[in-house]
Write a protein that binds this DNA or RNA. Structure first.
Lengths: 167, 167
DNA sequence: ACCTCGTATTTGCCGCGTCAAGCAAACAGG
DNA sequence: CCTGTTTGCTTGACGCGGCAAATACGAGGT
């Protein structure tokens, strides 16, 4: 009696139900808390912070729009607007790609790097407060393993490009 | 020198870092996928669905705005607007509280209940696809335990009221 | 009754991110 | 080289949800 994998259809098990409730609440609640803290304390939205962080980690502190969108798991248009905002604050600069003049690099400026360094401690504290403080180290590894299965899913709405050979 | 609970300040450990990346991606990606499916297949947003579900589970299929907001982990104003939309579709009805005429009940109509029943299978499938299919049953329990620690946090932005004695 | 304060909910305004459409540069074929 | 297509990014219009101010009602004191 091999309980095959016929796509189960009935209602969820009690375990699944419990999981789902907790999960749902978490994915609503935690991002909001993080975003709120960052906005209040640093006047910066989560996605702006993320963009800065991704750029700071990229070789040469630059990323093509597409790659930035993919890495940040958000849409190309959303990314474009984020870079608009950051550029308006002088934290990022747009630069045409030399090889492919259709493309742009978002380049982190020194001011942007400083801004990130400045925002980092508060954000880190916020993350600890809202995330790690609720987790035992035992939870942590199990959790990570499980989460990484999600990470392969759903690249992002508009974005579906594999890569761009950066310049 | 009462450094009793020195809130850790240094950078994250590698484990924490890995966790955070996976976690961040998940909380961006999964809700979007769920929301997208529901919107495409049922023309209903996740929060509308949630509101309907919560109402359907409530005694007498009614909930005060405040309680609905708390249960759904969203702001009071957001809840108000969601109920607006649902009311516009005849799925929910507002009814003044008899005892406390400041308050309103959001009452699930029969049409609303039907709508929920109709949307449920597709949403369930979507949840399985985007969530449970990525999780082993072993993951499930560990995950749930960990998640439930989050659930106690951050009641919801504007909302902070304990309860309202429903009529 | 009146004034004031606290509570329940709604509304004004705004930022964010999505989709769809637009524009520009690269590329493929004749 | 010109033309049609694809790729990379931006822009216009829109919906959502958040905060803070406004509104509506209830309660307590005088």
């Amino acid at each position: 009696m091999t309980t095959e994998e016929p796509p189960r259809q009935g209602p969820l098990t009690a375990d699944e139900e419990a999981f789902l409730r907790a999960f749902t609440r978490t994915i609503i609640t935690v991002p909001r808390a993080l975003d709120g803290d960052l906005l209040r304390d640093q006047g910066m939205s989560m996605s702006e912070y993320t963009a800065l962080r991704l750029l700071s980690e990229a070789p040469d502190r630059r990323l093509r729009m597409n790659d930035l969108a993919t890495a940040g798991a958000l849409s190309l248009s959303g990314t474009s607007r984020i870079v608009d905002r950051l550029e308006g604050q002088g934290l990022v600069r747009r630069q045409r790609c030399p090889n492919d003049r259709r493309g742009y690099h978002a380049v982190l400026t020194d001011a942007g790097f400083d801004r990130l360094r400045q925002a980092w401690p508060a954000h880190l504290a916020s993350v600890r407060r809202h995330v790690f403080d609720h987790l035992s180290t035992a939870d942590l590894s199990a959790f990570t393993a499980a989460l990484q299965h999600f990470a392969t899913d759903v690249p992002c709405p508009e974005t579906a490009c594999p890569d761009g050979a950066a310049d």
